[in-house]
Amino acid sequence: MPDPAAGCDDERVRLLVSTASETISRRYVLARHQIAAAVLDADGAVHVGLHVDAMVGRAAVCAEAGALSAARLVTDADLVAIAAVRFPKPTEAPAARVVPPCGLCRELLLDHAPGISTVVGSPNGLKVMPLGELLPHKYVGTKWPSTRETGDVS
């Protein structure tokens, strides 16, 4: 299966997308594991996560959450970028593709890595953008201090 990062000039994008793509290519199981994610920390290490589906949708675990957890098991370094790759179902064209984090993962990642960027597809290929731009009005609670600019919370 072709690497979704092939031809990309950004070394960081190639690393994250290729790692996620290789992971899901090895671990894909129909209706069980469809997405893998790779997160890069400030020290240059890459941590991977695997989507774990469930009969009850709410019990499923996204690949991005798995990658975040894997990173936090071994480092306190800032997390700087993440990419997720979805493996095609047997009924789809045989091409893995980069997917942006779902809404829950956007919230979770920004809670734990407020400055993180994500890889997304664009008309000109893959690009890196701040995750906060995909979620401009993130929920801000009171469990712990926020490091993000929150604006008026009246």
Score class of each variant (00 low, 15 high):
Met1Ser: 14
Met1Ile: 12
Met1Thr: 13
Pro2Asn: 11
Pro2Cys: 03
Pro4Ile: 06
Cys8Asp: 15
Asp9Ile: 07
Asp9Met: 10
Asp10Val: 09
Asp10Trp: 11
Glu11Ile: 02
Glu11Asp: 08
Glu11Met: 03
Val13Asp: 04
Arg14Glu: 10
Leu15Pro: 01
Val17Tyr: 12
Val17Gln: 07
Ser18Glu: 15
Thr19Leu: 02
Thr19Gly: 01
Ala20Cys: 01
Glu22Leu: 10
Glu22Ala: 13
Glu22Thr: 10
Thr23Ile: 02
Ile24Cys: 06
Ser25Arg: 14
Ser25Cys: 06
Arg26Asn: 11
Tyr28Pro: 00
Tyr28Cys: 04
Val29Met: 14
Leu30Gln: 15
Ala31Pro: 00
Ala31Cys: 05
Arg32Ala: 08
His33Glu: 13
Ile35Arg: 13
Ala36Ile: 03
Ala36Glu: 09
Ala37Glu: 12
Val39Ser: 04
Val39Leu: 11
Val39Trp: 05
Leu40Ser: 04
Leu40Asn: 04
Leu40Lys: 02
Asp41Leu: 00
Asp41Val: 02
Gly44Gln: 06
Ala45Arg: 04
Ala45Trp: 11
Val46Tyr: 09
Val46Phe: 07
Gly49Tyr: 13
Leu50Lys: 12
Val52Thr: 08
Val52Gly: 00
Val52Glu: 10
Val52Ile: 05
Val52Phe: 04
Ala54Lys: 06
Ala54Pro: 00
Met55Ile: 12
Arg58Glu: 15
Ala60Glu: 08
Ala60Gly: 06
Val61Ser: 06
Ala63Thr: 07
Ala63Met: 06
Glu64Tyr: 05
Ala65Trp: 12
Gly66Met: 08
Gly66His: 11
Ala67Gln: 14
Ser69Thr: 15
Ala70Arg: 07
Arg72Lys: 11
Val74Trp: 12
Thr75Phe: 10
Ala77Trp: 09
Asp78Lys: 01
Val80Asn: 05
Ile82Gln: 11
Ile82Asn: 08
Ala83Asp: 14
Ala83Ser: 13
Ala84Gly: 11
Ala84Phe: 07
Val85Gln: 09
Val85Glu: 13
Phe87Asn: 14
Phe87Glu: 15
Pro90Gly: 08
Pro90Arg: 14
Pro90Ser: 10
Pro94Ala: 04
Ala95Arg: 15
Ala96Lys: 15
Pro100Val: 12
Pro100Phe: 05
Pro101Cys: 09
Pro101Ala: 09
Cys102His: 08
Gly103Asp: 15
Leu104Asn: 10
Arg106Tyr: 04
Arg106Phe: 05
Arg106Ala: 07
Leu108Ser: 07
Leu109Ala: 07
Leu109Val: 03
Leu110Val: 05
Leu110Lys: 02
His112Ser: 09
Ala113Thr: 06
Pro114Tyr: 03
Gly115Ala: 12
Thr118Asn: 05
Val119Pro: 00
Val120His: 01
Gly121His: 05
Gly121Gln: 09
Gly125Met: 09
Leu126Ile: 09
Lys127Glu: 13
Lys127Cys: 08
Gly132Cys: 05
Glu133Phe: 08
Glu133Val: 10
Leu135Tyr: 14
Pro136Ala: 12
His137Ile: 09
Tyr139Pro: 00
Gly141Arg: 11
Gly141Ala: 08
Thr142Ala: 02
Trp144His: 11
Trp144Ala: 11
Pro145Leu: 01
Pro145Cys: 00
Ser146Thr: 13
Ser146Tyr: 06
Arg148Pro: 00
Arg148Asn: 02
Glu149Leu: 03
Glu149Ile: 04
Glu149Lys: 05
Glu149Phe: 09
Asp152Thr: 02
Asp152Arg: 02
Val153Ile: 12
Val153Ser: 04
Ser154Arg: 14
